[in-house]
Deep mutational scan, measured.
Amino acid sequence: MTSCHIAEEHIQKVAIFGGTHGNELTGVFLVKHWLENGAEIQRTGLEVKPFITNPRAVKKCTRYIDCDLNRIFDLENLGKKMSEDLPYEVRRAQEINHLFGPKDSEDSYDIIFDLHNTTSNMGCTLILEDSRNNFLIQMFHYIKTSLAPLPCYVYLIEHPSLKYATTRSIAKYPVGIEVGPQPQGVLRADILDQMRKMIKHALDFIHHFNEGKEFPPCAIEVYKIIEKVDYPRDENGEIAAIIHPNLQDQDWKPLHPGDPMFLTLDGKTIPLGGDCTVYPVFVNEAAYYEKKEAFAKTTKLTLNAKSIRCCLH
């Protein structure tokens, strides 16, 4: 018999989150649709729960009410004593943790798909938090293969000092899905179709896995975050240069030392320094102006996964 890495157990509980950011409308629209008619997301033997994560922000069509829901799922915020004085999103995070967690427990949901849009030209993107997770690498390989020839990129946010504390991190297997470009507060049919297909293929993978299909060893190309880059700023902290036209919409493309990065209003080009080629992502993302992030630098690498098969009882 072929030796293989056996994944822990079959997958039982899956959640699909929309509206973690209330103005990213593809996930909101799909989740609302699936709450009314969820036939397309159901798979035999699998509990799939669509869920609106930040209903107040969705109602106002804004990213958040008090603070970013997708950055506060750490033990400090989840452990705060519940009171009306807490920011709305912290209270909501505790409610979500109660419903789908608790985080880092045996009772937490197996998989959470968190649906997002970006204003950046990132196409279909899967966000991975753990480079050693054979199950998710296999799932992402399946999704990428199923979507081809449509490109699907994998963004690895594993980093020693950049801690995200994402909404989906309460699950055993957290999956971020990011599709763009799409303006905030807008629905685009092409973007919706791409996100819908990503979810379909992900659920198909889980179904095949649960039925005992063995997935042979595989490898995927990923883009691992190195650092986030702020806009150049003046002495008052105001933005002093904008994304250069040569960099705009060039997510995932190589940016070499000396290539144009920013452009000042008086026409001066600010190039990339250093001696390493990087791959920019979230270029000129609207939501990241407040976070002082013009783009993120990534490096390209390959992740390998062992063969996996479900432990059938």
Rank of each mutant, 00 (worst) to 15 (best):
T2N: 12
T2S: 15
S3C: 10
H5T: 12
H5D: 11
I6M: 15
I6T: 11
A7F: 13
A7H: 13
A7I: 10
A7K: 08
E8S: 13
E8H: 09
E8P: 12
E9W: 09
H10M: 14
I11A: 05
I11H: 05
Q12L: 07
Q12V: 11
K13C: 04
A15L: 05
I16Q: 02
F17V: 11
G18Q: 01
G18M: 02
G18L: 02
G19L: 03
T20D: 02
H21C: 11
H21G: 06
G22P: 11
G22I: 08
N23L: 03
N23C: 15
E24P: 00
E24S: 05
L25H: 05
L25C: 13
T26G: 07
T26M: 03
T26A: 09
T26H: 02
G27D: 01
F29S: 15
F29K: 10
L30E: 03
V31T: 07
K32W: 05
W34M: 01
W34R: 01
E36T: 10
E36R: 08
N37R: 10
A39Y: 08
A39C: 09
E40D: 09
E40Q: 04
I41L: 07
I41F: 02
I41M: 04
I41K: 01
Q42D: 13
R43E: 03
R43I: 04
L46C: 15
E47T: 15
V48L: 05
V48K: 01
V48I: 09
K49W: 12
K49L: 14
K49M: 15
P50I: 03
F51I: 12
I52C: 09
T53G: 13
P55R: 15
R56I: 12
A57Q: 05
A57W: 06
A57F: 06
V58Y: 10
V58Q: 11
C61R: 09
T62H: 15
T62M: 08
T62V: 09
R63M: 10
Y64M: 09
I65S: 07
I65A: 13
D66I: 02
D68H: 06
N70L: 12
N70W: 05
N70D: 08
R71S: 11
I72T: 07
I72E: 07
I72C: 10
F73I: 08
L75T: 11
E76W: 13
E76H: 10
E76L: 11
N77L: 07
G79S: 09
K80I: 13
K80R: 13
K81S: 10
K81M: 09
S83K: 06
S83Q: 11
S83W: 07
D85L: 08
L86N: 14
P87L: 15
Y88A: 07
Y88D: 12
E89Y: 04
V90I: 13
V90G: 12
R91K: 11
I96Q: 07
I96S: 06
L99F: 14
F100M: 07
G101P: 09
K103Y: 13
K103S: 08
K103N: 10
S105V: 09
S105C: 12
E106Q: 08
E106W: 12
E106R: 14
D107E: 12
D107F: 15
S108W: 11
Y109S: 04
D110M: 02
D110E: 08
D110T: 04
I111F: 05
I111T: 03
F113D: 02
D114A: 03
D114W: 04
L115T: 03
L115V: 05
L115H: 00
H116K: 10
H116V: 00
H116I: 03
T119A: 10
T119M: 01
S120C: 13
M122I: 12
M122D: 02
G123L: 03
T125H: 08
L126I: 05
L126Q: 00
L126C: 05
L126F: 10
I127A: 06
L128Q: 03
E129A: 15
E129L: 05
E129P: 10
D130E: 06
S131M: 10
N133Q: 05
N133R: 03
N134L: 06
N134Q: 15
F135C: 01
L136R: 00
Q138G: 00
M139L: 10
F140D: 01
F140P: 01
H141D: 04
Y142W: 12
Y142I: 01
Y142S: 03
I143L: 04
I143Q: 00
K144M: 10
T145V: 13
T145R: 12
S146E: 09
S146N: 10
L147H: 04
L147E: 00
A148T: 14
L150K: 14
L150E: 14
P151A: 08
P151H: 08
Y153Q: 10
V154Q: 01
V154A: 06
V154K: 00
Y155R: 15
Y155K: 12
Y155G: 05
I157L: 13
E158K: 05
E158Y: 03
H159T: 11
P160R: 15
S161W: 11
L162M: 07
K163Q: 15
A165I: 13
T166Y: 11
R168I: 14
R168N: 13
R168S: 10
S169H: 08
S169P: 09
I170L: 12
I170K: 09
A171Y: 03
K172E: 04
K172N: 10
P174D: 07
G176Y: 10
I177V: 15
E178Y: 14
G180S: 00
G180V: 00
P181G: 04
P181V: 02
P181I: 00
Q182P: 01
Q182M: 06
P183V: 03
P183K: 02
Q184N: 07
Q184D: 13
G185W: 03
V186N: 05
V186I: 13
L187A: 14
R188S: 00
I191F: 04
L192I: 15
L192T: 08
D193Y: 14
Q194Y: 08
M195I: 04
M195F: 01
M195P: 01
R196S: 06
R196P: 01
K197T: 15
M198T: 14
M198G: 05
M198E: 00
H201K: 05
H201I: 05
H201G: 09
L203N: 01
L203D: 01
D204Q: 01
D204W: 00
I206N: 00
H207M: 15
H207Q: 06
H208Y: 11
H208A: 13
F209H: 04
F209G: 00
N210E: 05
N210W: 04
K213I: 11
E214P: 10
E214T: 08
E214N: 07
F215D: 00
P216H: 05
P217D: 09
A219Y: 07
E221H: 04
V222W: 01
V222L: 03
V222H: 01
V222T: 08
I226Q: 08
K228M: 15
V229Q: 11
V229C: 07
D230R: 12
P232S: 00
P232F: 03
P232L: 05
P232G: 00
P232I: 04
R233N: 05
D234I: 04
D234E: 11
E235T: 08
G237K: 06
G237Q: 09
G237I: 01
I239K: 05
A241K: 02
A241F: 00
P245M: 03
N246V: 08
L247I: 10
Q248H: 02
Q248P: 01
D249M: 01
D249A: 02
D249F: 02
Q250K: 12
Q250V: 03
D251E: 06
D251P: 01
K253Q: 10
P254I: 05
P254T: 05
P254V: 07
P254G: 07
L255K: 05
H256L: 11
H256G: 09
H256C: 15
P257D: 02
P257H: 04
G258Y: 07
D259V: 03
M261F: 00
F262C: 00
T264M: 13
T264F: 06
D266E: 11
K268A: 06
I270N: 02
P271I: 10
P271C: 07
P271L: 09
P271S: 14
D275E: 13
Y279V: 04
P280T: 03
V281L: 07
F282I: 01
V283S: 02
V283T: 05
V283Y: 02
N284M: 03
N284C: 05
N284T: 04
E285I: 03
E285L: 03
E285Q: 09
E285D: 11
A286P: 08
A286T: 09
A287C: 10
Y288V: 07
E290D: 13
K291P: 09
K291G: 15
K292L: 10
K292P: 06
K292F: 11
F295W: 06
F295S: 01
A296R: 10
K297E: 03
K297R: 07
K297C: 15
T298M: 06
T299V: 15
L301E: 08
L301H: 14
T302F: 10
T302R: 14
N304E: 12
K306W: 06
R309H: 13
C310K: 15
C310E: 05
H313G: 11
